[in-house]
Design a protein around this nucleic acid. Structure first.
Length: 497
RNA sequence: GGUCGGUUGGCCGAGUGGUUAGGCAACGGUCUGCAAAACCGUGUACAGCGGUUCAAAUCCGCUACCGACCUCCA
């Protein structure tokens, strides 16, 4: 049974059934980070969303090649400023170290954070500096095809001429070339470009620009949008299935990328464009320039005045999954507190469902259908453009059932043995394999567990003797120490608060 | 200024032209020695105004407020 997985395509502005170009294979390119400083929570949200997509495609048995670049050339800070510096070069100058040292530091930081969030590494993680030759070749092709011109060693893309010949320009972002002309003309009159909407695909390096490469036009560096065109083409071909990135990249980055690909390869690169929405803080986009960004490390340590406590990477992942990837997600301490509780409850249920044992003769009733319907719903909601809030809602309904079975509030033999087994495998697959939520092993301390088992035994004896003072003392003292005892149908268990 | 998007119950957050989202918090119940945990139940929300319709929170228009992009950004 092949699923009817549908995704929202930013290019056509509607949900479409996903059909790869080659059956059973998917090529996906996602614009990665610029490694000139630490990854912040906004970056985390985007890449966690694409990790989910990657995981689900893999679950659907597609062979996925997931390419996510590392931008280590940086972009110009101000395209019209001829002393404009590369972001990475600027940071390097300020910190008195080599640009590639900056790149290395923040690349490692980024990969480390991705790993903590349980995001799978992409199949290929190419760097812009490692693909200068490919980029130069692409510039040459665009020149040969007549969609660019050289000016003082820099090469610019003829945006207006391109837009006149190709409907593609503006389709993704909804921008009209007339508006761009109107808007930018007055402000940036002294440019060496023919038109304000033109953009550089090769830039001649200013004399103190550190990152530079030889080329047919000048010693310089590739333009803002070129690396993604070059690397996606190299690793996924001229046409592939999914191109993704944050919504803020839609214009100009992705629009210009399409223009480059069409003018070079005569085809728009991707069938489906997927854009993730922004993470906001107090209603405003989280970004470095606004100085309102929070670092993952601050969250994991609780070392930030906005946070009442530390939150684990899995709590953060859960927090992201609570909202749909195309909706704005507003960061809040309260939201993370909720997410933490949700996550813990979900993980307790995951443990509980695995421990359920089938007892008694099958007396299957309506409950069997209820459970199976809920399990089906998980995939129906995943198929619907990865509606994770709905998936979680469905899982919570299953959690209630699982706990009820565990505490004998529902009888296990009211569902079939096959249904129990399906629930056990499916709950785990959805939670761990697809949503990527792993247990954090909080009860893995064997010594602590042994000590607590002694106390639980002592309390049990006290209760049997109706020595409530003693049993309540154990319970209350442990609670004060952050350990909660839970009396269930099968005895007492414990968890950290 | 231009383009696009949002406004859902105490908070978060889905969704749909007519039927319970879900979570957190709250309250009631079951269970319990009492609690906690767990389960069950309760809340009747969709910015405002007008229109289309048998029926709109869901479609259309206007207004208000918020945001994103138009400059590097995930």
């Amino acid at each position: 049974m092949k699923s009817q997985f549908s995704v929202y395509n930013s290019l056509t502005k509607k949900k479409e059934v996903f059909k790869p170009l080659i059956a059973d294979r998917v090529g996906m390119y996602v614009c990665g980070p610029t490694v000139y400083s630490n990854a912040h929570l906004g970056n985390c949200r985007t890449f966690t969303s694409f990790d989910l997509i990657y995981r689900y495609l893999t679950h659907l048995n597609y062979k996925v090649r997931y390419v996510r670049n590392i931008t280590d050339v940086g972009h110009l800070e101000n395209e019209e400023d001829m002393t404009g510096e590369d972001k990475i070069a600027k940071k390097a100058r300020l910190e008195q170290i080599e640009p590639m040292e900056i790149v290395q530091r923040y690349t490692l930081d980024f990969k480390n954070v991705m790993s903590m969030l349980n995001n799978h590494p992409p199949s290929i993680e190419p760097t812009a500096t490692g693909h200068i030759i490919e980029q130069i070749e692409m510039v040459q092709k665009i020149l040969d095809n007549g969609y660019a011109y050289e000016r003082n060693g820099s090469v610019y893309f003829k945006t207006v001429q391109f837009a006149e010949k190709h409907d593609e320009y503006g389709q993704l972002s909804g921008k009209k070339i007339e508006d761009l002309r109107q808007e930018t003309r007055d402000l940036k009159a002294q440019s060496e470009k023919d038109h304000p909407a033109d953009f550089a695909i090769w830039m001649k390096a200013h004399e103190n620009h550190i990152m530079r490469w030889d080329s047919p036009w000048s010693v310089g560096f590739p333009g803002w949008h070129l690396e993604c065109s070059a690397m996606s083409t190299k690793y996924l071909g001229e046409r592939f299935d999914i191109h993704g990135g944050g919504m803020d990249l839609q214009f100009p980055h992705h629009e210009n990328e399409i223009a480059q690909n069409v003018s070079c390869c005569e085809t728009s690169p991707a069938s489906y464009w997927m854009h993730t929405n922004m993470l906001t803080f107090e209603g405003v986009k989280m970004s470095k320039s606004l100085n309102n960004s929070i670092l993952p490390e601050e969250l994991f340590t609780g070392n930030n005045h906005l946070l009442s406590q530390a939150y684990s990477p899995m709590t953060l992942r859960f927090f992201f999954l609570r909202s749909h990837y195309r909706s704005i997600c507003d960061f809040s301490d309260k939201g993370l507190q909720d997410a933490e509780k949700n996550y813990k409850n979900m993980m307790s249920a995951l443990k509980a469902v695995q421990e359920l044992e089938y007892i008694g003769k099958e007396k299957v009733n309506d409950e069997d259908k209820v459970i199976n319907d809920l399990l089906d719903q998980c995939f129906i909601h995943l198929d619907d453009d990865l509606n994770t809030p709905r998936v979680l809602a469905t899982l919570f309904e299953l959690v209630a059932k699982i706990n009820a079975f565990k505490n004998k509030q529902l009888k296990i033999n009211h569902i079939s043995k096959a249904t129990l087994e399906r629930m056990q495998t499916t709950f785990k697959i959805v939670l761990q394999d697809i949503l990527g939520l792993l247990p954090e092993e909080e009860n893995s301390d064997a010594v602590l567990d042994n000590v607590l088992q002694v106390l639980i035994e002592m309390r049990k004896t006290a209760r049997a003797n109706k020595d409530w003072a003693a049993s309540d003392l154990i319970r209350d003292q442990l609670l004060a120490a952050g350990i909660q005892l839970k009396d269930g149908a099968d005895g007492t268990s414990w968890s950290k608060l």
